[in-house]
Computed example of a mutant assay.
Amino acid sequence: MSSGALVAAVDIGGTKIAGGLVSRDGELLHEVQVPTPAKGSAAAVLSAVHSVLDLLASQASWHRVDRVGVGSAGPVDVTAGTVSPVNIPNWRGFPLVDQLTAHPAVSGRLPVVLGGDAVAMTAAEHWIGAARGFSTALCLVVSTGVGAGLVLDGKVHAGPTGNAGHLGHITVDLDGDPCPCGSRGCLERLASGTAIAAWALGHGWRPEADDTSAAAVAASARAGDPVALAAFDRAAKALAAGIAATATLVELEAAVLGGGVLRAGDLLLSPLRHHLQTYAALPFTRRIRILPAQLGTHAGLVGAAALALR
């Protein structure tokens, strides 16, 4: 392990809260995680985040940490230091930066830098992953929800409040289901792991075991189950529409996809590339490359560190 300065990184999602120590060259040197009490009180969620910081601060190398980077499910407001994750209902305008700055291991010594989790993933993949070298790219996290971030002119483009590229909450179905964000027919409502499993169950799919996750739908799809295959095709079509719309706006060179649903591999990527042939119809959108993310579950922590370093 190098002896240089480290970044303490925190990745806050609807399922888990992870923490890590990241070197200046993007190497994740230590990782911890706890479950997210997503339906709990605001204080309960904050306590889980504090427990992650406590675990990191107990490491012998903590004295080398010179900043804290945080990627949170969004939306976020990096100017105000607040978060309002759609999947954590009791955090609305929650002053996360102030709360973390007051943590005993941080207070008075370490600056705290906040970003959206998908923007963090984008920063990671552009730094040392699949989006490296592209001047214009879209990076997506397809998991419990759908998040995304943009690289424009060779730099991560987070926007004034840190929410630019929030593709999961654009409408792709004008008459679609209401979304917790307040809109309806959002991409997330069709393409997330939660949506894939819910649609499959609603159309007659039944798992062999008592597992109704997107991973179980993927297992059935690999075995040839037509409803499971249709669920992934529906998600791929929605993603293709969103990616094509973004490519039309900013002339994307690449779209990089990560997140737990991407463990399904070609069950999602093959129909996605197929449907792009329909939606990415203009000549300057047809050259977009669809790439799997390279950093896997480490992207959130490496990306939070990248945002802090930036």
Rank of each mutant, 00 (worst) to 15 (best):
G14L: 12
G14T: 08
K16T: 14
S41H: 12
S61E: 07
W62C: 05
G14F: 13
P35Y: 06
D54Y: 05
D54F: 12
V49Q: 01
L56K: 02
R24H: 15
P37D: 13
K39Y: 06
G4T: 02
S23I: 10
G20M: 12
K39P: 11
A60I: 07
G14D: 06
H30I: 05
T36A: 06
V52N: 15
T36Q: 02
D25L: 05
G40I: 04
V34H: 05
A18Y: 01
S61Y: 11
A18L: 15
S23D: 06
L6D: 09
H30N: 08
A57K: 07
I17C: 05
P37S: 06
G19Y: 15
L56P: 01
Q33V: 02
L29C: 04
K39T: 05
R24C: 13
S41K: 11
V45G: 01
I12K: 00
L29G: 07
P37A: 14
P37C: 14
L28M: 08
S61M: 07
A8E: 11
A18M: 13
V7E: 01
H30G: 02
S47I: 12
L46N: 05
L29W: 14
V10I: 05
H50I: 05
P37L: 06
G13P: 07
V32G: 15
A8D: 04
S61R: 15
L29Y: 08
V7P: 00
V52T: 07
P35M: 12
V22L: 08
W62S: 10
Q33R: 09
A18K: 12
D54T: 06
A48W: 10
L55Q: 15
A43N: 14
A9N: 05
L28R: 03
L6Q: 11
E27D: 09
A48R: 00
P37G: 12
L21G: 04
A60R: 13
G13F: 11
A38P: 08
P35C: 07
P37V: 04
D11F: 13
G40F: 05
G40Q: 08
A8N: 08
L55M: 10
G20A: 04
G14P: 13
H50T: 11
A5H: 13
T36D: 10
L53M: 09
V10K: 01
S41P: 08
S47Q: 03
D54K: 11
A5L: 15
I17E: 00
G4P: 15
R24L: 15
T15G: 05
L6C: 11
L28Y: 15
S61A: 09
V45D: 00
